[in-house]
Each structure stands twice: as C-alpha cells, then as structure tokens.
Write a protein that binds this DNA or RNA. Structure first.
Length: 582
RNA sequence: GCACCCGUAGCUCAGCGGAUAGAGCAGUGACCUUCUAAGUCAUUGGUCGGGGGUUCGAUUCCCUCCGGGUGCACCA
C-alpha cells in the first residue's frame, strides 16, 4: 500500500537522486524538529562517504541542484546547516491527505500487504483458573490486545491464545477440599471468590495436618489419570472461572481465538522430553532429573524433576513446538506478552527449541516483557498479604470516577446526556482511561498504581482524545444535512493549524508499521494524542460551521470528519472506544 | 557473585547517532454573549545519575562506577 506519506518520501528521494550528487539508496529521510520543514535529509553520512567536504556546503549544493516540478507534492528544498529541508505544497498536500483518509475510512492507516499470507500467534493475559484476575493481569491483556489489533492492521492472520493456568497441584488441593468438605462453590454467589477462600483454607489447615497435602497430591494424580469425578469437577472449576473472566474480557473488549491452557499440552510433554534427550539437548542425571546445560550462555534448567514431574520450561517448549507444527511455515512470529521477570525463562525455552533443531520457530519466537505494577510505595501487590487489587474492582472504580466527572460537567451545563448515554459513556471513558494509562508509555518501566495519574481528566489521557473526537462528531451533527458536503475543495485548507493536523494525520500508516516493528503500542498512543492536540489548536482558532465562505465550510466539514476518523482509528488500535458525544 | 531492565524538568513519561532535549501533571498569568473551557495561549522549571572513551557530532553507541528493580534447576 502506498500512502501519501510514502509518495512524499519517494518524491524527495527522487529529487535528490536526479541531481546526480547522491544515490537513492543513500538517502534516509527524517522528520525535522520543531516543524522547521516537512521532511529533511541529513547529508552528513553521504558527505563523508563521498569526500564531499563540509556538510553545510554539500547541503547547499544539493539544495540548489534540486529542481522541483510544478505538479509534485514538494514545493521547495532548502539547505539549513547540514540538512536539506523539504516543504510540501500546501494545497496539493491537503487534497491528497484528506482524500486518502476519507476514502479509506476505518481502514486508513492499515497496510495489509505487509502481513499478507502470514500468521502470527500471540499469547497474552493468561490468568490462573480458580483465581481472581488482579491488576497484574492488566498489562499483559492490554498490551497483547493492542498488538493484536496492530498486527491485524498490518494484514497478519493473528491467532490470540489465552494460555490459562489450568493445571498443577493446586487443582489437587481444590479437589481434595471439595471432596472432604462436600462443597459446591458453583452454587455460591461469587464462585471464584469461594474457590480462592477454599484453597487458602485448605492450605492453612494442611500446615497443621500434613496428611491433607498427601490427599491433595493423590487427587492431582487421580486427575492426571483421568478419574471421572476429578475430571468433571476440574472442568467445572474452569467453567465457573471462565464465565467470570469472560465477563471481564467483555468489559475490556478483549477476545481470544484459542484458550489452550497448560493442561492442553500435558499429553505432549513426555515426547518432548524424550526428544530432547535423544537429540542430546538434555541429559538424564543420576537420580532421574532431566537437565539442560547451556554452558556459559545461560543458567541450566530442568525439563523433568527427580519425581518425574515436568516444569514450566517443559510446557512452554512443548507449546512452542505445537504452534510450529500446527500453524506451519506461514507462522511468521510466535509472540509472548509476559512479564519481564520471565525473561530468562523464555531465553531458555527458545534456546532449547533451537538446539532441538527447530531453528525457524526459535528465531520467530519473541518475548515482549513488561515491568510490574506496584503500589504507591513501589511495593509489589501480594495475593498472600491481601494487598492485591482485583481487576474488576479497578474497572468498577474507573467507571465510577468517570461517571462523577460526567455528572460534574452536566451540572456545570457543559454538556447534556441522557441516563442511557451516561451509562455508555462512563464505560467508554473509565475503561479507556485504564487502558490508555498502561499503553501511553513503553512497557519496560515498572508502573506505580496511582489513581490520580491513571484516571486524570486532563492532558495526555484517553479522555482528552475521546473528548476531541466527541467535539468533532458534535460539529458534524450540527452541520445536519450539510454533511457530507457535495462538493468540497480540500485545497482551501492552507491555514498553519490545518496543515499541522493534516501532516499528523498522514503519518498514521508509518506509525502503525513502526509500532509493529517495535512491538510498541505507545507509538500509536503518542500519534493519536498529538493528532488530538493539533486539532484542539485548530478548533480554538478557526470556525467550521461559521467559516468565512460556504466552500471553506464544506472543506472544513470534511477535514473534521477526517480528524474524527483518525482519532477513532488510533484509539481502536489501542483497544479504546471513541464516543459520539460526551 | 553473575545476568537483564530502569535512572531525562518537583512528579509521570517521549526522544535512542544529527539542527535551540519535548509533552502532560503540578506552579504562575491570561482566554467562555461565538461549533462541548474535559479546551487553548503564555510562562517558570533540565550539569539528559557520575566519570571516561568512540565520532565531524552522543541523552542516544562502548567501558566503568553509583542508585532502584528483576531473575539465576526440581514453583509458575
């Protein structure tokens, strides 16, 4: 897909190449700082490579040799320091920019050729069955979901997998408790909460009475062996937990294509361990444990314990191989959105797979790590200490805070909304705020969970972007039958504020590609925020409905429509909704 | 001890080889009879953790030190 953004760069490159002073391949263009120009070519590297002397002089020479054409997008080339700066022709640029946004609509920014014919597996969220989702699950869910949207925009067939924690001795514990105490948590008002309490109570009692743990282990063994009641009850635990998780995902707008929990891979583990041994990747040590030694490269790890049980690494190696076998060579990437504390784990898993001879999938597997969510004092939230904040509580609180600000604006006479509209807008604003607070920054840092910051109602927030979108839609509503206009001449949009908005709009395709390359939704968040900011500056200074001429009014109506579209598309890539009115 | 991540304005973060280091919040001062002031404009605030090095040029790359976080086989 060739966008205006691409055409502009191609034209600048061509202009430079036709001077004969540089080759097209040597030209790498940058976006200038402080809006000095629209595109820049830093000549330093080329000047040096060609022994062309002083970069400032070389830039002057280049700029003087560039001959712009009358029907091109570029108006002029000027030297400034060691740069050749290009400025666009405002009318032609406005025309082209507006046309592509309005004609592509929801698809504006997408470049489906990039991923065409390629598949991509993404593992994210991955909570544990019989537990509550807490703030710690938010990051994986929200980052994963946004990347999911971004890769779809790039044309990949994305398979989102929720890798549930649905296996392990904790299920033996729960089965033992349910059996001994004859409990039916599925009939309780908050079944998952009951499971959490039952689990905790059983473990507490087991501290006094170690025989209880033997019972738990024996129930897990029965589960593994396929005991009918154990299997049926285990499935029931999954069902009641998933019905709660699904409700949370629905609030966040998150969906998955597969939910292959750890149990799904259980039957494959023995074969994987055996294959690793056969290929000399792992060795059986005296006493029985199966060890992988990476030499100086990485700390060694286990594929099988002395008691014969498998480990996390075993399961993830099996998962990785399963995906490669199931999704085939079209699988371009196997992505794990999992906390940074698992970094070493994934290095080990990918290296095991590589040493087993599956180099392609090892190369295509990537771990997207992110920092932890801590409390205001920088302490980790702990389930055990009871300091954990549950995800549903976070969402409830966000929605309440959103409603409070909405009602405040209504009471100040700033807006009018029906009760139905309030009910919808508070969700969009509250949940959007939570998502944006996580995505607007890169994933590496730890995040201090701070209500004042994540539910701020001013500045760089989802709310600001949503508000800007609502203002755009409001203008279009007020235009009534005049929108869409029959004839609109976008070349009238030559005010600096209009040009700034259009330039930002035209960069979305580039931003989506970059976000995909860097696995970084924050790139899209920043673009969307900047677009809202540029539009707000326009909005402050210029009138749309009361523009000086009917022609200008028509052009600006289309302009506003394009901005709304851009804001909506940007937010959608983050997994955030754009309200029509707020 | 070893490995990885982070350290940029009072606070939260962009920028990651190029032009005077940018936003938001907080502070100060303006702007609503005019399309939603949830906004806009102006302004205050920086030895880019310290020190070396590579480079025409370093917040950005390399080394080293300091501070904070995380991980380092029979948990996941």
């Amino acid at each position: 897909m060739t966008y205006l953004y691409d055409a502009l760069r191609a034209e600048a490159t061509e202009l430079l190449a036709t001077t004969g002073l540089v080759d097209a391949a040597e030209v790498s263009l940058a976006i200038p700082k402080n809006n000095i120009a629209d595109l820049a070519f830093p000549v330093f590297a080329v000047a040096k490579a060609r022994n062309a002397g002083n970069p400032n002089e070389f830039a002057k020479l280049l700029a003087s040799e560039v001959e712009v054409s009358d029907d091109g997008l570029i108006l002029a080339a000027e030297a400034a320091g060691g740069f050749v700066n290009f400025t666009v022709s405002p009318r032609a640029f406005a025309q082209a920019a507006l046309t592509e946004v309005l004609s592509l609509g929801d698809a504006f920014g997408n470049d489906t050729q990039i991923g065409a014919g390629k598949r991509l597996v993404m593992e994210y969220s991955s909570p544990n069955i019989a537990r509550k989702m807490h703030v710690g699950h938010l990051r994986s869910t929200v980052i994963g979901h946004s990347l999911h949207k971004i890769y779809q925009a790039l044309g990949y067939e994305v398979i989102a997998d929720n890798h549930l924690g649905d296996w392990g001795t904790q299920f033996g514990t729960l089965l033992a408790a349910l059996d001994q105490w004859k409990l039916t948590p599925w009939n309780d008002p908050d079944p998952v909460q009951s499971l959490v309490e039952i689990y905790s109570r059983y473990n507490n009692e087991a501290r006094e009475n170690p025989a209880l743990m033997d019972d738990a282990r024996s129930w897990f063994r029965k589960l593994e062996e396929g005991d009918a009641w154990a299997r049926q009850t285990w499935q029931r635990l999954i069902d009641i937990t998933m019905s709660e998780f699904d409700a949370t995902y629905a609030r966040l707008g998150v969906t998955f294509d597969t939910t292959h929990g750890e149990s799904y891979f259980e039957p494959m583990l023995n074969a994987v361990v055996q294959e690793a041994i056969d290929k000399g990747v792992a060795t059986v040590e005296s006493g029985g444990p199966v060890v992988v030694d990476f030499g100086d490269m990485l700390p060694s790890c286990l594929l099988r314990k002395t008691d014969g049980a498998t480990l996390y690494q075993t399961r993830d190696a099996a998962t990785c191989l399963y995906r490669w076998q199931t999704y085939g060579p079209e699988l371009a990437r196997n992505i794990y959105v999992v906390g940074a504390e698992q970094k070493l784990h994934f290095q080990q898993v990918f290296e095991i797979v590589r040493r087993m001879g599956y180099v392609e999938i090892a190369d295509r597997s990537v771990h997207i790590p992110f920092g932890q969510v801590t409390d205001a004092a920088g302490q980790r939230f702990s389930m055990r200490k009871g300091t954990a904040i549950f995800l549903n509580e976070v969402l409830d609180e966000a929605i309440e805070r959103a409603e409070a600000i909405i009602r405040e604006k209504i009471s100040e006479g700033k807006t009018e909304l029906t009760d139905d509209a309030i009910a919808s807008v508070r969700e969009i604003v509250g949940i959007g705020g939570i998502i944006y607070a996580d995505l607007y920054q890169g994933p590496d840092r730890n995040i201090k969970f701070d209500w004042e910051r994540i539910m701020s109602f001013t500045g760089n927030t989802a709310l600001y972007i949503q508000y800007t979108h609502a203002r755009c839609r409001s203008i279009l509503r007020d235009a009534g039958a005049d929108f869409p206009p029959h004839h609109a001449d976008a070349s009238l949009l030559i005010e600096p504020e209009e040009q700034a908005v259009l330039k930002q709009l035209s960069r979305l395709p580039h931003v989506i590609r970059e976000a995909g390359d860097k696995f970084l939704p924050a790139t899209v968040a920043e673009w969307t925020y900047t677009l809202a900011q540029e539009f707000s500056r326009f909005y402050e200074k210029h009138k749309v409905l009361k523009a000086a001429t009917p022609e200008l009014r028509d052009a600006r109506l289309n302009f506003v429509s394009a901005v709304a579209q851009g804001l909506k598309n940007g937010l959608a890539l983050l997994g955030i909704a754009a309200p029509e009115k707020m």
